[in-house]
Write a protein that binds this DNA or RNA. Structure first.
Lengths: 332, 332
DNA sequence: GATAGGCGCGGGAGCGCTCTCACGAGAAGC
DNA sequence: GCTTCTCGTGAGAGCGCTCCCGCGCCTATC
């Protein structure tokens, strides 16, 4: 009657049934006759009733919420500055579109992660998706009996939906090799980052397979780092004719550096990146890169949580595919 | 005693006080003596107690949650593809870092928005931040007695934290003019987008003030649109010596198009963008652009919600500043 | 026709917390 | 010494829902 939101009690009263029966209908639970089911459905429609999710969560002891936990390990590559997290978010949102589950975001700096475990693990939710988590955080959250899926390999017991970073890096070098490039340098990511490590090992495997020279330096996954790394490489090895760059952001910096030395991309130095995010279409020339299916991975991880099919140690691996644009070409 | 989480009842029992007193201490409410306050604090520490936020929300009728509502009006510029949303997210997270308020994300396609109002407005939260909302959605949410702040102008009654888009566009053209550029074309955004409209009006005002010719076309806020628009402009007006581009993504496409016609950026055609997101540092050459203080705006909007200082019709305007990089230069 | 089994339904006890209200003790005023 | 006021404290009633349990009816079985 009042202006406040109708409750299940109102629905029951209008339908002439008990609260329990109304609840059965609302939750599609068995034990209600078709007749009452129709009456309740009608009452819900008439009143414009929507269940109070908070009360549901309290009474049932489980929340219809998925957590996306983003661990920021480098302030320069935080949320606002890095396209990775928005792709993850997009993927999670896709999986959540059709189900009545809410999305909660928790962003935590790597150094604060340990101290904030309590807060992060506070509520009993459907589960948590870990973007870029450390093994420590991942295992601790898992031990708090939380359903957890990581998007990068952490500890062996933590379920993971990962990309074939090593295979992708190998394929990148193979592509450059197939174009006739023979002096293929690499700009790697941070030494401790698991994705970075896998990409480096894929590069090395390819270098060995094709009997090329291993020329590499680190770029820290930032544009500035990629820029500086490319200048170093060109200075020390002026005859480089291709670069494998472990992420698009660094590749953007590398292209700028290469053209600044008077060389042409792709003719003099071909560049191949890794990620295929928004940056890849914005470089000049547009970047040939290895596409990380980040959205698809995040969607898959979320679905695992929703269907409850996460088991300790579960691994799912997505392939990384070549996307050809204009930063690579055959040697003239 | 059991393995389950301690409740306020446990705290009260251990401290030898009532549940009410324990609650007072937990919520820093007045009406508890220092002695009992210490006893309760100690009990909380001993038990490792953390309040159940769900129960709190149900009992108090308000949730310690802020909603970030992202309306996607163009599938090509969705979450994963556009750096805007991640900057907003970063800004909101900053404001939420020090307070115990959770962040919930709701992403909704523009065409679904009307039908999903119920879901969006479902719970009584601290408030909602609207990224890119339509006037309809904004007013409807506001009428449901929700605290709402928009990041773009919507309806007059809806509080807004906006950027001085018109002023920024004016300043961009003024900068090009001060570099000696006199044939300054524009690539505008979508006709219906409020930001886009403001930027276009700022451009026109400047064009009139400096007695230049108004040459403009639409680019739809996408890289592809910017690319195509630049080609059209150069084809119809080959003597253009500068471009004001209403967003960085389009500017990236424009730079690619300009160099593809054999012209040099910035010497032959200077380009100035708008936004200053990650794309701006990745173009080649790096993009001179008008910095939209998106993070700061989102932080301010969130703080308004947290402090409860949102009043209908409230407007806050942030200035847009020039960031000089290498895509603009004086006429040779 | 008596007993057993199945099933639709409602009663009622909680989930963990907040918040109002009443109570009692001590301080202050006459 | 009485009333009045203040203030710390606890009892208890919810918030809106879920879910267990038990009742009563109907059908099946001998």
């Amino acid at each position: 009657m009042s202006g406040s939101r109708p409750t299940i009690e109102d629905v029951a009263r209008v339908a002439g049934v008990s609260r329990a029966t109304a609840s059965r209908v609302i939750n599609d639970a068995p034990g209600a006759s078709d007749l009452l089911r129709r009456r309740v459905t009608q009452a819900i429609a008439d009143l414009g009733y929507r269940p109070n999710e908070t009360a549901r969560a309290l009474a049932s002891g489980r929340q219809r919420t998925v957590d996306l936990i983003a661990v920021i390990d480098n302030p320069d590559l935080a949320l606002g500055a890095h396209p990775y997290y928005s792709r993850v978010l997009a993927g999670v949102v896709t999986a959540l579109e059709t189900v009545n589950v809410q999305l909660r975001i928790q962003v935590v700096a790597e150094e604060d992660a340990a101290g904030r475990i309590d807060t992060i693990a506070a509520d009993l939710t459907v589960g948590a998706i870990l973007a870029n988590a450390t093994p420590d955080l991942a295992t601790q959250l898992q031990h708090r009996s939380r359903k957890v899926v990581s998007l990068v390999p952490t500890a062996p017991s933590v379920p993971v939906v990962e990309a074939d970073n090593a295979g992708g890096a190998y394929a990148a070098v193979r592509h450059l090799h197939s174009l006739g490039r023979r002096r293929i340098a690499a700009i790697h990511g941070p030494d401790l980052n698991t994705c970075s490590i896998a990409r480096r090992s894929g590069y090395r495997r390819a270098i060995n397979a094709f009997k090329l020279r291993d020329i590499g330096t680190a770029g820290g996954f930032t544009r500035e780092g990629g820029h500086a790394a490319a200048l170093r490489l060109l200075d020390e090895h002026p005859d480089i004719d291709a670069m494998f760059v472990a992420c698009d952001l660094m590749a953007a910096g590398a292209i700028q550096a290469i053209t600044a030395t008077g060389r042409r991309v792709p003719e003099d130095v071909s560049v191949i990146g890794f990620d295929d995010n928004v940056v890849a279409i914005c470089t000049n020339p547009p970047l040939t890169t290895m596409r990380l299916p980040t959205e698809e991975m995040a969607t898959a991880a979320t679905r695992m949580l929703l269907t409850g099919t996460v088991t300790p140690g579960h691994r799912e691996r997505f392939t990384v595919e070549l996307v050809e644009r204009d930063s690579t070409s055959e040697v003239g």
